[in-house]
């Protein structure tokens, strides 16, 4: 295995690696390329745009002045008619400008960020408490709970969507925007808690018990030892778990679509993007630019967390 490779073997090896990398990366290049292409350039199979076209990004990020509505000449003549009352003019104008509405990308991004961030923080915090107890303490029904977490983590959202929706209707949460968002937050919490507990539990077990023991001999209580010894030592893993939970919530579509459909102002990016895609035709540049902007934070997060993440994921046989 470690013998020197012949030239042919090297060529084959590099060719295979290159093929695999291209397979993995090509759709991303396609997204980036299309987001930068002018509509007339979409049919061009080359990934390099003929002309760099940044309008889609400008529009999504709100850097472009609102487009003047296309008003047919006949209507413009009508508008300049002094006999028409101001009220009637406004009505006429509104009819034509409604087509040029802007997709409030920033708002959706903020919605998604807020709910994902809160989910990440709460989930990591609650999971670290529970994972510590399961990894280190003895208490009744401990192994039942440890195994139960594993079980829960394999029950997919599809199986729970009807009862969870009905529960939130019965409790009355589904009838207000605030209640709906709260329901969604709780759902994201349960979607992330089991895996967070699993990853943190495995990590806590790798920390030598003697460290806590020493702290307790110095007069720390168990809880203080947890706060002062275990938590600081686990910072990289806590960060990784936070990122993982954040990204799960950032990407979630199913429950967002079930709960947020009628609350347009509070939609998250996946739902908003899907709506944008299905409601209008021929806007590939905007769709791709929005995809790129949704993708970027996630890729950056994972680059930051990658080192611990790969290990944490394989130890947990993680969801995917």
């Amino acid at each position: 295995m470690m013998n020197k490779r012949s030239t042919t073997q090297s060529v084959i090896l590099y060719a295979l690696v290159l093929a695999l990398v291209i397979f993995c990366v090509f759709p991303f290049l396609q997204i980036l390329s299309t987001s930068l292409k002018h509509p007339i350039d979409w049919g061009n199979p080359s990934l390099i745009p003929r002309v760099l076209h940044l309008d889609a990004y400008k529009e999504l990020l709100g850097l472009m002045p609102a487009k003047e509505a296309d008003i047919p000449a006949s209507v413009q003549r009508l508008l300049s008619n002094p006999a028409l009352s101001e009220d009637q003019k406004q009505k006429l104008l509104a009819k034509f400008s409604s087509g040029g509405e802007v997709f409030p990308f920033g708002r959706y991004m903020l919605n998604t960020f807020v709910i994902s961030f809160i989910t990440g923080i709460c989930s990591t915090f609650l999971a670290s408490l529970a994972a510590y107890a399961i990894a280190r303490l003895r208490f009744p029904a401990q192994s039942l709970m440890a195994n139960g977490v594993l079980f829960v983590y394999m029950v997919g959202g599809v199986l729970l969507m009807v009862p969870l929706y009905q529960m939130s209707v019965n409790v009355g949460l589904a009838s207000s925007a605030a209640g709906t968002i709260f329901s969604l937050f709780l759902i994201y919490l349960i979607q992330t808690l089991p895996v967070a507990m699993y990853m943190l539990g495995n990590y806590f077990r790798t920390i030598p018990f003697s460290l806590e023991e020493a702290a307790m001999m110095d007069g720390c209580s168990r809880v203080e030892a947890f706060w002062r010894i275990i938590m600081p030592l686990s910072k990289p893993m806590l960060f990784t778990v936070f990122i993982y939970c954040f990204v799960i919530a950032w990407n979630e579509y199913l429950f967002a679509s079930v709960f947020l459909k009628q609350y347009q102002d509070f939609q998250t990016l996946p739902l908003a993007l899907q709506t944008l895609f299905t409601s209008k035709n021929a806007i590939w540049d905007r769709i791709m630019a929005a995809s790129m902007l949704t993708l970027l934070p996630v890729v950056i997060c994972f680059m930051l967390a990658n080192k611990h993440l790969s290990g944490g994921l394989t130890d947990g046989g993680v969801k995917g």
């Binding site: 759709p27 991303f28 396609q30 997204i31 299309t34 990204v247 950032w250 990407n251 579509y253 990016l269 996946p270 993007l273 899907q274 895609f277 769709i287 791709m288 995809s291 790129m292 949704t294 993708l295 996630v298 890729v299």
Partner: peptide, 9 residues
């Protein structure tokens, strides 16, 4: 990568 982004690609 988020599913929603890559499906469009």
């Amino acid at each position: 990568a988020p599913v929603i982004s890559v499906v469009f690609g």
